[in-house]
Computed example of a mutant assay.
Amino acid sequence: MRIFKRENSTKWWVDWTDQKGRRHRKSTGVDDKKLAEALAAKWQQESFLEQHFGVIPEFPFQEALLRYGQERLRDNPVSYKASVKSRLQRLMDRFGDKTLTDLTHAVIREWVDERLGEVKPATALRDLSTLRAIMNKAFREGLLAQVPPFPRMKKDAGRCRWLTVEEEKRLLMASKPHQRALIAFAVDTGGRRSELLKLDWQNVDLARRFITYTKTKNGEDRTIRLTDRAKQVLTDLGPKEIGPVFTYRGQPMKDVSTAFAKARVRAGLDDFRFHDLRHTFASRLVQQGVSLYEIMHLTRHKSFQMVQRYAHLAPDFQERAIAALNAYGTVSAQSA
């Protein structure tokens, strides 16, 4: 084992070869030689234990978190910036000084209980899912011998607030003209707010009646065929070769929260959010007999379970099922 300093560096480095002939070289990150020697001895011992007894050395949680974060940022920058980054920061603040093996079931359970006292269950569940993903990735990469059992949390059935036709009329009448276009388009295409505000004319094909939402929350492009009303909305806005579709006074619309909240109040709508326009899109499709499988692909939900919240809206689904069984009901239950 050799301890040395590189040129123009105050930090000590360590260099050693293990019993399999593999060379290891890494910086200790310190300029105290005795501390550097202690770290070097520790690393050499950990390398020996891992090779001969399968003992995985301690690995800092913050490094595992950063590896996971880099992967998510690379695979889906939009989702990372929108939600993943803030969840990772919360986990870093809480567990940044720990190793992976410090995160036992008891430690995670205590943290979950605290989160449930601070936020809604759905938020706590998303944080827990992110922590589990970090630990699973570390396990796959050989940085953790075993993923601890995670506390069970009941998943929320999901919100399903949608507009009736009469409520939609009230909301549109209570909105400013530029808002009406956005609201109607959201209802007819199922676009998320971020997707709508990023929609560019270069991704609009009026001739073939298609639009494409790019770089969506799931990291995939999503193409939607336009309804008559959605096409008319775009026609009225005045198609261009390029540029944002939804604007206000010539500038791209960036935040519609305040204006939408005021319109909602004027319309007398309780417990209604902008995202519920997307629920309205899916709910109306179900009520017209479109299958949940088709809706999942139109909305680009990640799993079938996420569209299950709309199942109860399907028209006469139980009647159809019973009618199918009745077709076989020719043998009397009293028959010998």
Results as ranks from 00 to 15, higher is better:
V256T: 15
E114Q: 13
T28D: 13
G142T: 00
H52Q: 12
R22Q: 11
L285N: 14
I295R: 08
M253E: 05
R161L: 03
L128M: 14
L163F: 09
R87L: 07
R25H: 03
L35C: 02
L182R: 06
R152T: 11
L292A: 06
V307K: 05
L171I: 06
E50G: 04
T99P: 04
M1T: 11
I322Y: 04
R180D: 03
R284I: 05
N203C: 02
L125G: 02
L292Y: 09
F4A: 13
F185W: 13
E166P: 02
A36D: 08
R22E: 14
I3Q: 04
E141F: 09
Y248N: 14
R273N: 03
F304Y: 05
T280Q: 15
E46W: 10
Y213E: 04
L196P: 11
S79Q: 13
D113V: 01
A138I: 00
T17F: 05
E141N: 09
Q70W: 01
P60I: 03
G191V: 12
K137D: 06
E294N: 09
K98L: 05
G69T: 00
Y293N: 05
G96H: 07
M153F: 00
S86H: 14
S335H: 15
G142P: 00
I134N: 02
L182C: 07
L91R: 00
V245M: 01
W12V: 05
S129D: 15
V30C: 03
M153G: 00
E319A: 14
Q45K: 10
M135S: 00
P252S: 08
R192N: 09
R126L: 07
S9L: 04
H301S: 06
V112T: 02
R87K: 13
V165S: 11
K85R: 15
A106Q: 14
Q287N: 08
Q44H: 08
V84Y: 12
Q44K: 13
K5W: 12
E50R: 04
L143I: 10
T330R: 12
F53E: 10
K85D: 05
D93S: 07
G243M: 12
I3N: 11
A261K: 15
E141P: 07
R278V: 04
V256S: 08
F260G: 10
M296I: 01
T214M: 09
T10A: 09
G191R: 13
P149A: 11
G250T: 08
D276Y: 07
T212C: 10
G250I: 05
R300V: 06
F150I: 00
G29V: 03
S283H: 08
T227L: 09
G117W: 05
E46I: 02
T223Y: 09
Q288V: 09
K262W: 06
T212V: 08
R222V: 03
F95R: 07
Y68A: 04
I108D: 00
K137W: 01
S194M: 08
G142S: 03
I3M: 15
Y68P: 02
N136G: 01
G69D: 01
E195D: 11
R109A: 13
R222Q: 11
V14Q: 15
F53I: 03
